[in-house]
Design a binder for these strands. Structure first.
Length: 531
RNA sequence: GCGUCCGUAGCUCAGCUGGAUAGAGCAUCGGUUUCCGGUACCGACGGUCGGGGGUUCGAAUCCCUCCGGACGUGCCA
């Protein structure tokens, strides 16, 4: 809708026009303050300009009125326009909010190390990425979801060592000396027992078999991670192994050309020339490549696959890494602007209003699977998608367990369930309802219809700005409008029954579609909490 | 020190391509239909938009500066 109006104004004024939704809906559906910016060049008062411009649109079919008020031009869409749009959406629910973008995008997210199950911090990036993925696909983008598996380096060695020690300690009841850093947690005990039954006790005690154990363990951990993600309705198309990339290093290094140089017996990336603070080591004195080398090969691989655009979602603690990766992409001969790096900020947890500190050392890590078990995947997804990804998030586990207004998932589901219930209680058939015309609506009904039809522009906006929280915000406000309308207006048994039920079907469609884009299935009925 | 992000109601946060009276949920207090599910709705209370300066017809929004906070500043990943 907004695009239609916007395009019309652009054609009329031959310039881009700021179009906004008035805070006070009694003004109309859309408004523009363009008269203020024209005032100076035309040397007339904004009011006079607005009056003249509004008159131009007086008879347009899309609008029922176009009025100038205090310098603003307010547009009210006609009922026939809104009604026809809703009619089309209800008949083509899968097309509603869809677009036909053709860009191919590679979206990399989560990419947590395969050394342990996902914790609450990973969950945020996972939800953010998956929501962006769903929004983008709805808009027609061809998006591949990729997980980069860091299955090389010290951490894998440490995984093997930790698992042997864990096995010796808790499975074989041996005395062990714990190093300063090692992986621990319930999953390690489980893995140690499993390793014992698969390989026998030698694998837990023989230092020469640490590597073998580590390689087996990281595959098992990846299975854990994949299942954690699946529980939250998140699925990846491709997994790329870091270890498998180093074979390609020689070739990619040559491709970097002048981008690398040798000094002090090491190989350096000339990243300071491309905006990084300093040059970075890519191969150490002993010939072992650094993590950055792996990332360079990985990004070269991405670009050689010929996507139009690349999006990486990283934890905010990696932001210092952006400049060097972009520098490498540049040296490889690709446009670094095609690589977009989004940061997902830290999550802090409250329990009963008190900060809950999570530390690996103390072994009280909050796992993603714990939260899913406690509050459900829907609530987890909703709350993590509800906040701008680039600001720190604080949330209270207890609040999410409540089933009232303070829990937005219940609030929205309840709105959807109310719609389904009233539809099933009505004596009217679906055909009778669809045959009704959405006209002569009250101001509140008109506002509700307009709000329901906003979903497509919310999807566009949320994806384009990478601010997925705009979708849950919209769903909350649509649900609120529905609840209020439901409370105020009697529907069943009135002369307006068919018309209002059609309006409700439209609201239901938007709620359902919006929730599905968040990986949440709308509920048709609410069930009381089991005690 | 430098870099990135952030500072809006008691709490958690929207709003930030500059535009009409700064919004919501929670919390607190009060209220609601001969009712289609009260898991809802309405109202009250509550704000120097961190401080100061600047640009503008107009600033929570843009610029400068100061204060406060988070994160980063490995040849770990």
């Amino acid at each position: 809708m907004k695009q239609r109006v916007s395009a019309l104004l652009r054609a009329q004024f031959e310039r881009d026009v700021v179009l906004e939704k008035p805070k006070d809906r009694s003004f109309g559906h859309y408004a523009t303050p363009i008269a203020f910016s024209l005032a100076k060049e035309l040397r007339k008062s904004p009011m006079a300009i607005a009056d003249e411009l509004a008159a131009v649109f007086g008879e347009h079919a899309m609008f029922s009125s176009v009025e100038a008020t205090k310098g603003y031009i307010n547009f009210r869409l006609s009922e026939s326009f809104l009604g026809e749009y809703a009619d089309w959406a209800l008949k083509n629910p899968d097309e509603f909010g869809r677009a036909d973008r053709e860009e191919k995008i590679l979206l990399e997210f989560v990419s947590a190390n395969p050394t342990g199950p996902l914790h609450i911090g990973h969950a945020r990036g996972a939800v953010y990425g998956d929501t962006l993925l769903r929004l983008g696909r709805r808009l027609g983008y061809d998006i591949t979801a990729e997980y980069y598996v860091n299955d090389a380096g010290n951490q894998i060695d440490l995984l093997g060592l930790s698992l042997q020690l864990e096995g010796q300690h808790s499975v074989l009841n041996m005395e062990v000396e714990w190093p300063e850093k090692y992986y621990r947690g319930e999953y390690m005990t489980v893995l140690a027992e499993e390793a014992l039954s698969v390989f026998g006790s030698d694998i837990l005690t023989n230092p020469d078999r640490q590597k073998e154990l580590a390689l087996w363990a990281k595959d098992r951990v990846m299975e854990l991670i994949v299942s954690d993600l699946a529980e939250a309705n998140i699925h990846f198309d491709t997994f790329v192994s870091e270890a498998s990339l180093y074979d390609d290093w020689e070739r990619v290094m040559k491709k970097l050309g002048e981008g690398v140089y040798e000094a002090e017996g090491k190989l350096w990336l000339r990243s300071s020339e491309k905006g990084d603070e300093k040059d970075r080591v890519v191969v150490r004195e002993d010939g072992r490549p650094t993590y950055l080398a792996g990332d360079i090969v990985y990004h070269n691989r991405k670009f050689e696959q010929g996507f139009d655009h690349y999006i990486n979602i990283w934890g905010a603690d990696h932001h210092g890494y952006i400049a060097r990766v972009k520098a490498a992409v540049d040296f490889l001969g690709y446009d670094p602007d095609r690589l977009e790096i989004l940061l997902s900020q830290m999550v802090s947890l409250l329990k009963d209003g008190e900060p809950y500190k999570m530390s690996k050392r103390a072994g009280n890590v909050i796992l993603m699977s714990d939260i899913v078990e406690e509050i459900g995947a829907d609530a987890l997804r909703f709350i993590f998608a509800s906040k701008k990804s680039d600001t720190a998030l604080e949330f209270d586990v207890e609040v999410l367990k409540k089933q009232d207004n303070s829990n937005p998932v219940y609030y929205i589901n309840y709105a959807h369930a109310r719609i389904q219930t009233i539809l099933s209680k009505s004596a009217l058939s679906r055909e009778q309802i669809m045959a009704a015309e959405l006209k002569d609506l009250s101001a509140d009904a008109d506002a509700l219809l307009f709000e329901a039809l906003l979903l497509p522009e919310v999807i566009e906006d949320a994806f384009a700005s990478r601010q997925v929280q705009k979708l849950p915000d919209y769903l909350k406000s649509l649900a609120a409008r529905l609840h209020k309308f439901y409370y105020d207006v009697r529907i069943l048994g009135t002369e307006e029954e068919a018309k209002l039920l059609k309006l409700f079907m439209m609201v239901g469609l938007s709620l359902r579609t919006g929730l599905s884009l968040m990986g949440i299935t709308a509920k048709d009925r609410m069930t009381a909490d089991e005690k």
